[in-house]
């Protein structure tokens, strides 16, 4: 019994110290977080994280390069021939297998939207060039087809499709 009583008094005495320490630790953490969080993208940067773009002025067979999150993005209005070519390729021929359907939005197959940095070392490929009627990267000779998939050369992967959706037939929201 006596040990238990002793134990209780010790606990009671320590409680204040433990509580003070715990509250202090919570306070310290609450101070540290904003000091780190200020490193995150600020409100003016986040406001441009998602952009809306009207594709209607782009005629068939034309492409434009726009900027999204500081990166160049290709918006390509493909011809029926390019779509047909892209869909005719068997997946087994591809270095980074992906169907053309998976790289465009259903009902908007003519619109190909990709981040314009070569997946090899980041150069911007030249449009409508190379051996596959798509893009050719002049830096190290990567060839992409009309779906932006890697076909030949050192690049390991297809050109990256950013997250996007069509808000209407002509208005696309990227990001």
């Amino acid at each position: 019994m006596s040990t238990q009583a002793e134990h209780t008094t010790t606990n009671r005495r320590d409680f204040l110290f433990v509580a003070t320490g715990a509250v202090g630790a919570v306070g310290a953490a609450a101070v540290v977080w904003p000091l780190i969080n200020q490193l995150n993208p600020d409100a003016s940067t986040l406001a441009l994280a998602s952009i809306q773009y009207d594709v209607s002025p782009i005629a068939e067979g034309q492409s434009v390069t726009i900027t999204w999150r500081g990166l160049p993005v290709f918006v390509r209005h493909r011809t029926p021939k390019e779509i047909e070519e892209a869909r005719a390729v068997p997946l087994s021929d591809l270095k980074d297998p992906a169907t053309d359907e998976s790289r465009v939005k259903e009902g908007h197959e003519q619109w190909l939207i990709m981040i314009a940095n070569c997946t090899h070392l980041g150069c911007i490929p030249t449009g409508q060039a190379g051996d596959f009627d798509g893009w050719f990267c002049p830096c190290h000779g990567s060839h992409y087809d009309s779906s932006g998939r890697i076909r030949k050369g050192p690049a390991p992967a297809n050109l990256v499709v950013p997250p996007y959706e069509f808000l209407s037939d002509t208005l696309v929201q990227i990001g």
């Binding site: 005495r13 204040l16 110290f17 509580a19 003070t20 509250v23 202090g24 306070g27 609450a30």
Partner: peptide, 16 residues
């Protein structure tokens, strides 16, 4: 509110 509470605890600790 935190600071007042914490100051109270610190005062108790210091006194003890």
């Amino acid at each position: 509110i935190f600071l007042v509470l914490f100051a109270g605890l610190m005062w108790g600790t210091k006194r003890k």
